[in-house]
Design a binder for these strands. Structure first.
Length: 916
RNA sequence: GCCUUGGUGGUGGAACUGGUAGACACGCAGGACUUAAAAUCCUGUGGGCCGCAACGCCCGUGCGGGUUCGAUUCCCGCCUGAGGCACCA
């Protein structure tokens, strides 16, 4: 009987479904284990081979834990709101809800194909009203809360208001405007509008103004992804910065807790490093520079107040408010021209730029200590969003400042003596200061406190802790997202009541943007007249709390019952890619902390352990559009033109040759494409990069499952390499895994004889093979080393085949070991062996050391670190005996010869090294 | 540019805490079975050198240094691939 994988897999998938084999209860006497995948965005491209990598890993771990006696929660759902569905709607006129649900159906089919043990009764879709009702509810919690600095936690606004009534805001520094101060009586005297404007400055979800990528020609705001080289990806129109009203989350208030919380969770060091760099806590000072012969001060933030006497120029961000007032008429033209140039550039371009650009404002600041006049420049490398949007430049100590000074011939003051060589800046803190008045002779790092004290005494500056992280923009001028439960009346944002939720996303027939940069909802009469907010929430809203909803997915009264969330608690294992390091993984941590602070849940970190699956990379194909035209030039000729490389769907490319007819049909934008061919062909560019729908380089797993079966596919994805490691997708090698399963099958069945397993008692050598495998596979699974577990299975089966072992006693245990990896295969043979219950309900075999103990070890013997011989020595032998045995060995004698032995290193159970 | 991370045979990878580099596979070559193919099985397979062979020797984990009895593993410098950089998710 042959291994009929397709029949077996279909059969067991049906039975599992009928028996509800993977349904999980919220009540159990067993210990709980919550294993979670980052849920997918259901793209039109369907599931690609990169998705299942993490899902297979989590599935293996879940099944393993279940076999080990845990009550395992392992759910799946869809992150279903987002830009691509809307894009698709604009291009094809299909309602995002329809395309999203079609995509979800397709995803579900593909997932089911692979045999995951998800409890589908807990499925969540972020675009379902019954789900986003609670996303809106959490938004209201954020809107109705502020961050109390003394208690370092979120509290409801009512606390704040009662304090305002009693004592104004003396106890509550305003996070939105630190200079804001008012008394109780002033507070009572404010109009409602004024009061609401102040409260807004405290809310954790608040409204403000921010810059967006604005495309005038399309009349819409574009995502960074939709902008290529300053032009819109659709149509190639110019894009510039525009200020719009936006919602934000005041995540900066949580900066410290997000930082310290990292110590309590098991994320990789790299991940923690990334998050803490993103938060970017720094200790520095804010210093006020007065403007020469003018009103006003220029406030800068610096981490190096010790270098204050070395300031040779100031640089302000092109967006800085002061520019307007300080620039004399003589310089206005140049300044305006420079600002216009910067407006066309993305933040990324500005930061990555190697070319030095800038413009002198014509104004001067005064050094608050030395009174020296300092020219004020504008440059794109200073960003408005960080610090005060202005820096003091110290060329001798900072590389970027140094290059800037050189480029614009600004004289450099040396304040670090010999430590500055005039060729490179030296960012040291260890040099003794020179040219620095009262600081001369003091080591820089010690001077920091001295300068800070002095400035605080003189009132020209003060110590300041700063964060690189900014508040998170939380609104989109789009249709396909959660509506805000907010009504605008007389310019005041009023929250809707919980009873009015969900505020349903209305149907529209046209997804084009509204007037003045508003979202499509602004085009709906009834929506506008009801005064609803016209923005929608961003993609990450729904994904910031979905892990909680899985615990209690159909609760209509609460986002999650407290008893239930207390039972499941933190996610024990969370698997997903590092690309979410500073987005989703920070937002969801913040939401969890807010919900915890407000008493809705009992844990303040969502994920106890994070495993970062590597990216399965795709092999992308590119076409090259000559800038500003609809001409596409073949890869080999692209160098001769100024071109933009655009991703093209790998499925309309044969190898590297583009199917030009399919390309024209692919997107309406390309319908009028003209091609410049080489040798009659259009050759595409190739690059290995992240597999993603937006790069059109996805490969579908269905064909592989069809050809080799789900179990082979599962094991192959694991066998590819460590789950944390990124690798480009390649199907070669899948045969080997398939052969392994067939070989394993033959331990049970012979093609001619049929069943070959027997009831004979196992021999010592068979038990040794089994128990070696139990130990290694259990350890490997526990430490997520699934690739080496797969090779251990191979070794085990190879050895059992060599021993001609067909004994049920051995094989039955092997099947349990194999269950997490190849569930259909294991289930089928388990039942064939006569078991009545499902194999997922079996218990994991227990390793017994007595079967694998060895009495001797083949020691590698090296001479001066080079391996020369292998000598088998009894493990009980004493060190002296070992020396004797080794020195008596012929090969050792030959190498040592007459040379005196300096020492012999003996590591018991490991190796022997003779030093001569 | 900044942050993070990787680089080991023809290929994917193994070597878990500094202790036999290349497990397990793929591919390739040769062979068995077969009318043939598929499937299956067996043998070999990092590079080089000496040799009929056995055996043996040298080199070898991106590159250049260092620490150590011993380095794929630790340290310093460099080259290079990937992910992220705040509106893709």
């Amino acid at each position: 009987m042959e291994y009929q994988f397709r029949a077996i897999e279909k059969k067991w998938q049906t039975i599992w479904k009928e028996k509800k084999a993977y349904q999980v209860s919220n009540e159990s006497s067993q210990p709980k284990c919550y294993v979670l995948d980052m849920f997918p965005y259901p793209s039109g491209a369907g599931l690609h081979v990169g998705h299942p990598l993490g899902y297979i890993a989590s599935d293996i771990y879940s099944r393993f834990k279940r076999l080990k006696g845990f009550n395992v929660l392992h759910p799946m759902g869809y992150d279903a709101f987002g830009l691509p569905a809307e894009q698709y709607a604009i291009e094809h006129g299909v309602h995002p809800s329809k395309s999203t649900h079609d995509n979800i159906d397709n995803f579900r089919k593909q997932l089911d194909n692979i045999g995951f043990c998800f409890d589908w009764e807990r499925e969540v879709k972020t675009c379902d009203a019954q789900y986003y009702k609670w996303t809106q509810w959490i938004f209201l919690q954020l809107f109705n809360s502020y961050f109390d600095k003394k208690e370092a936690k979120a509290k409801t606004i009512t606390h704040l208001l009662s304090d305002f009534e009693k004592e104004g805001n003396s106890k509550h520094i305003c996070p939105g405007d630190t200079s804001l101060q008012f008394s109780a009586s002033a507070w009572k005297g404010y109009s409602e509008k004024e009061q609401q404007a102040i409260i807004m400055q405290y809310r954790l979800a608040f409204c403000g103004y921010g810059e967006v990528n604005w495309c005038e020609a399309l009349g819409t705001v574009l995502a960074n992804d939709e902008v290529v080289n300053g032009l819109s990806e659709r149509g190639g129109h110019p894009v510039e910065k525009k200020k719009l009203r936006q919602w934000y989350l005041r995540i900066t208030e949580y900066a410290d807790r997000l930082l310290t919380g990292l110590d309590t969770i098991q994320f990789s060091d790299a991940m923690k490093e990334m998050q803490s760099n993103w938060i970017g806590k720094s200790f520095g000072a804010e210093i006020d520079f007065s403007i020469h012969q003018q009103e006003g001060t220029l406030k800068v933030y610096t981490t190096r107040p010790d270098t204050l006497f070395g300031v040779d120029f100031m640089v302000v961000a092109p967006e800085h408010a002061l520019i307007e007032t300080i620039t004399p008429a003589s310089h206005k033209g140049d300044v305006e021209q420079y600002i216009a140039y910067v407006k066309s550039r993305s933040e990324r371009e500005r930061m990555a730029e190697k070319k030095i650009t800038g413009c002198f404002t014509g104004a001067y600041a005064e050094n608050p200590l030395s009174k020296k006049l300092i020219p004020i420049w504008i440059s794109e490398y200073v960003l408005a969003g960080y610090g005060t949007g202005a820096i003091m430049a110290v060329p001798c100590g900072d590389e970027r400042d140094f290059k800037f000074a050189q480029h614009f011939n600004i004289p450099i003051t040396n304040i670090i003596g010999d430590a500055f060589n005039g060729i490179d800046a030296n960012p040291t803190k260890e040099a003794k200061l020179t040219n620095s008045d009262f600081l001369n002779g003091i080591v820089q790092k010690d001077a920091i406190a001295i300068v800070n004290d002095k400035m605080e005494t003189l009132g020209i500056g003060k110590r300041k802790i700063n964060y690189k992280m900014r508040d998170a923009a939380f609104s989109r001028q789009r249709y396909w997202g959660e509506p805000f439960p907010i009504k605008w009346i007389n310019g005041i944002a009023y929250p809707m009541s919980e009873k009015e939720l969900p505020l349903l996303l209305p149907e529209v027939d046209n997804y084009s943007p509204g007037p003045e940069g508003e979202g499509p909802l602004a085009n709906i009469e009834s929506w506008k007249s009801a005064n609803y907010e016209t923005n929608t929430m961003p993609g990450y809203a729904g994904s910031s709390w979905y892990f909680i909803r899985y615990m209690d997915p159909s609760n209509e009264k609460e986002f999650c019952n407290r008893k239930v969330s207390d039972y499941w608690g933190q996610v024990d294992l969370y698997i997903g890619g590092t690309e979410h390091a500073v987005g989703h993984l920070l937002y969801s941590r913040m939401w969890t902390k807010v919900l915890y602070d407000l008493g809705h849940i009992g844990f303040d970190e969502p994920f106890k352990k994070l495993l970062n699956q590597g990216m399965i990379q795709g092999s992308s194909r590119f076409v090259y559009r000559i800038r500003g035209t609809q001409k596409y030039v073949s890869a080999g000729l692209a160098a001769a033109h100024e071109v933009d490389a655009l991703h093209v769907d790998v499925n309309i490319v044969d190898g590297v040759e583009l199917n030009t007819a399919a390309f024209k049909k692919w997107k309406p934008d390309y319908a009028k494409a003209e091609f410049i061919l080489e040798d009659g062909k259009y050759i595409c560019g190739v690059e290995v990069e992240k597999m993603s729908k937006s790069k059109f380089n996805t490969v579908n797993p269905d064909d592989l499952v069809e050809r080799y079966g789900a179990d082979t596919f599962r094991m192959y994805e694991m066998f590819l390499g460590p789950v944390e490691q990124s690798k480009p997708w390649d199907t070669k090698g899948i045969e080997g895994v398939h052969r392994f399963l067939k070989k394993c099958w033959r331990l049970f069945y012979d093609e001619l004889k049929g069943k070959v397993w027997n009831e004979e008692a196992a021999t010592d050598s068979e038990l040794k093979v089994l128990h070696k495998a139990i130990k290694k596979i259990e350890e490997d699974t526990e430490r997520y080393s699934f690739n080496t577990a797969v090779s251990t299975f191979m070794i085990c089966v190879n050895e059992l085949a060599d021993l001609n072992c067909h004994k049920k006693e051995i094989l039955e245990k092997l099947l349990i070991l194999l269950t997490p990896y190849a569930p259909h295969f294991a289930e089928d043979l388990w039942q064939a062996l006569g078991n009545k219950s499902l194999i997922v309900d079996a218990s994991y075999p227990v390793f017994e050391a007595k079967y694998v103990t060895e009495s001797a070890k083949d020691y590698p013997v090296s001479i001066n670190g080079k391996m020369r011989a292998n000598i088998s020595i009894d493990l009980a032998a004493s060190e002296a005996q070992v020396h004797e045995i080794v020195l008596a060995n012929e090969i050792v004698k030959k190498w040592v010869a007459e040379t005196p032995i300096k020492k012999i290193i003996f590591v018991k159970g490991k190796m022997i090294n003779i030093v001569i």
